Simulated assay, not measured.
Amino acid sequence: MSQKVVVFSQIDREILMKLEQRYQVVQINPKNGDVNQQILEASRDADGMIGAGRVLNERNLKHAEKLKVISSVSVGYDNYDVGYLNQKNIWLAHTPHVLTETTADLAFALLMSAARKVPSLDAWTKHGQWSRTAGPDQFGVDIYGKTLGIIGLGHIGAAIARRGFHGFNMNVLYHSRREKIETAEQFKAEFCTLNELLSRSDFVVVAVDLNAESRALIGAKELQLMQPHAVLVNIARGSVVDEQALIQALKNRSIFAAGLDVYEKEPLQQSELFQLDNAVTLPHVGSATAQTRKRMVELAYKNLVDALEGRQPQYCVKSA
């Protein structure tokens, strides 16, 4: 009898067909009712699961006695109870590295859009307000030669630093849990405390994993340390930044602007952020190119197959 795989989100059609040729496949569909209940029932005799964007924990996996692997089509894994999965000897695989460059591209797109007021000026132009030469209300801030502060110098953080250093002649500062001497040397990046980075940077990019240490890392106190012309970019996780404190800082113009791809609650349907002309808001699309999403799901498929055939997946998450 073939092994059973639960597909708990939409995935690439070609990969789905490959799964169906190899395994007994059950797809979770929100149109069929409560998703958690579907997962609870479908995982009861499942050998593997693949997908993204669902919270998976003891509540909806408590009957999953045969489950060997959850293969997430993502880099982040804060949706999963890693401790519980390790306790149950269930591999949690993910897809790091393949989205590094794409996400770094988006971080710089947000940085530049916020700095030069691209969305608000686009709307200003389209709404027929360009009846005179652009004045101070339309002015942005310069990027070239400025100071770029990166919180989290992992793969994505380093890719952002490379763009700033080589492309825009930026002075690079970074803060992380430990010094990254070899990586930092490539960009002449200076390791500093969080407070020092915030106070010295013209642009602050948040690129850390979400964990107990990074949750609400940037709050009202930290935002007050930033310069009035500074721009904050968050491509990490929404909960790393206190959203209400950020909204207040943007309203007060205590910072110049923010570029956001992630939020405390997703999908975000209503928010004061949408009313602010100095907030650039995207719908969590850091990896959203056809090429990158294809590479991610291919890697997730490989991780799944490896686990179901008795091999340890290439990219496994371990609990702290």
Rank of each mutant, 00 (worst) to 15 (best):
L110W: 05
G128K: 04
D122P: 01
Q138S: 13
G140W: 00
P119T: 04
M112P: 00
L110Q: 02
L111H: 10
S131Q: 15
S131K: 14
L121C: 01
D142R: 09
R132D: 09
I143S: 09
V141M: 11
W130T: 04
G128C: 12
D137P: 06
A114K: 04
W130M: 13
M112E: 10
V141T: 13
V141P: 04
Q138R: 09
A114F: 10
S131A: 12
D137M: 13
A109E: 03
D142V: 00
Q138F: 08
G140K: 00
K126Y: 01
Y144M: 13
S120E: 14
R116G: 10
D137F: 03
M112L: 15
G140F: 02
T133R: 13
T133V: 14
G135P: 00
K126E: 08
G128R: 02
A114Q: 04
R132L: 04
L111V: 04
F108Y: 12
T125Y: 01
K117L: 09
F108I: 08
D122W: 06
H127S: 12
V118L: 15
S113L: 05
A109V: 08
A109S: 10
A134P: 05
A109D: 01
K117S: 01
P119K: 05
H127Y: 14
Q129D: 11
Q129V: 00
G128N: 03
H127V: 00
H127P: 04
Q129S: 13
P136F: 12
I143H: 11
V141H: 09
Q138I: 10
H127I: 01
D142M: 11
S131L: 14
S120Q: 05
Y144V: 15
A134Q: 05
A115S: 13
P119N: 09
G140A: 07
W124D: 01
W130I: 08
A123G: 03
S131V: 13
S113D: 05
A109R: 01
Q138L: 13
A115G: 13
R132Q: 15
W124Q: 02
A115P: 08
V141E: 03
T125V: 13
Q129W: 09
A115V: 02
L111C: 06
L110C: 07
F139A: 09
G140P: 06
P119E: 11
